[in-house]
Simulated scan of single mutants.
Amino acid sequence: MSDNRQSLSDLASLTANAPAPAAGETPAAADAPIAPAQPAAPLRQQEIDSLGRAYATGRRKDAVARVWVKPGTGKITVNGRDQEVYFARPTLRLVINQPFGVTDREGQYDVIATVKGGGLSGQAGAVKHGIAQALSKYEPALRSAVKAEGFLTRDSRTVERKKYGRAKARRSFQFSKR
């Protein structure tokens, strides 16, 4: 018990030199001044170009997407075409809109993206990565929500290389007994 009183008195001397609470009092009941809470980590600066857009690069598999985000009506343009035309599969459109759903910003930002390389699935992942990065640059307060979902991390999984003596990366050639 004496160790607890000693540590409480040490703690009290560290925080504004307040007297330690008596043996019967709880630390909350003491009349010691409460130190203000430490502010959270400083927010990052908003990164916007002269046209009021935030830019980011997204990558997935072999696809690289350059993404610009600006306030608007929710229109998403990929390589000069509407998202419904470029990404015909509904699942790919769902992938692209995930960052907006997590941050409750659906229909509030226009997106312009140019994508090169890879297939449609990799390109959709690259656009999603780019949108998440650009959103966190436009509104730094959204960074923690987007990061918690893992959208800021580049998905580094790629196709395994083909090995010699194999049909593909791991598949063997068909075996013939005779």
Rank of each mutant, 00 (worst) to 15 (best):
3 D>W: 05
159 V>C: 05
163 K>A: 12
170 R>K: 13
136 S>F: 04
2 S>P: 09
150 G>V: 07
141 A>C: 04
121 S>V: 06
24 G>D: 14
69 V>Q: 01
116 K>C: 10
129 H>A: 15
172 S>D: 13
67 V>R: 01
126 A>S: 12
111 V>L: 07
71 P>N: 02
19 P>I: 03
57 T>D: 06
1 M>K: 15
33 P>D: 11
125 G>I: 08
172 S>G: 14
25 E>D: 14
150 G>Y: 10
74 G>P: 04
162 K>F: 02
70 K>E: 11
171 R>C: 04
146 V>K: 01
165 G>R: 03
73 T>F: 04
46 Q>W: 01
163 K>F: 03
96 I>T: 13
151 F>Q: 00
7 S>P: 01
166 R>Y: 10
166 R>S: 11
81 R>V: 10
156 S>Y: 06
134 A>G: 05
37 A>D: 09
79 N>K: 07
61 K>L: 05
68 W>V: 04
97 N>D: 14
157 R>T: 08
94 L>A: 15
21 P>C: 02
132 A>I: 02
66 R>F: 13
136 S>I: 00
110 D>G: 03
173 F>A: 09
107 G>C: 06
85 V>D: 15
173 F>C: 05
139 E>W: 02
15 T>I: 15
126 A>H: 09
84 E>Y: 07
83 Q>N: 13
126 A>G: 12
175 F>W: 13
94 L>I: 02
131 I>E: 01
8 L>W: 07
62 D>Q: 15
101 G>H: 01
167 A>T: 06
9 S>T: 13
86 Y>V: 03
116 K>E: 15
84 E>L: 11
89 R>W: 08
8 L>R: 11
165 G>I: 09
79 N>H: 05
118 G>Y: 02
64 V>H: 01
58 G>H: 05
95 V>Q: 06
85 V>P: 00
52 G>E: 08
72 G>V: 00
3 D>I: 11
133 Q>A: 14
96 I>Y: 00
18 A>W: 07
11 L>T: 10
63 A>H: 02
42 P>Q: 11
74 G>S: 08
100 F>M: 00
36 P>H: 02
169 A>D: 05
13 S>I: 10
28 A>K: 11
99 P>N: 01
117 G>Q: 10
10 D>K: 07
42 P>L: 09
35 A>F: 07
25 E>V: 06
68 W>A: 10
41 A>M: 09
137 K>L: 15
159 V>S: 14
62 D>Y: 12
105 R>C: 03
35 A>R: 13
7 S>V: 14
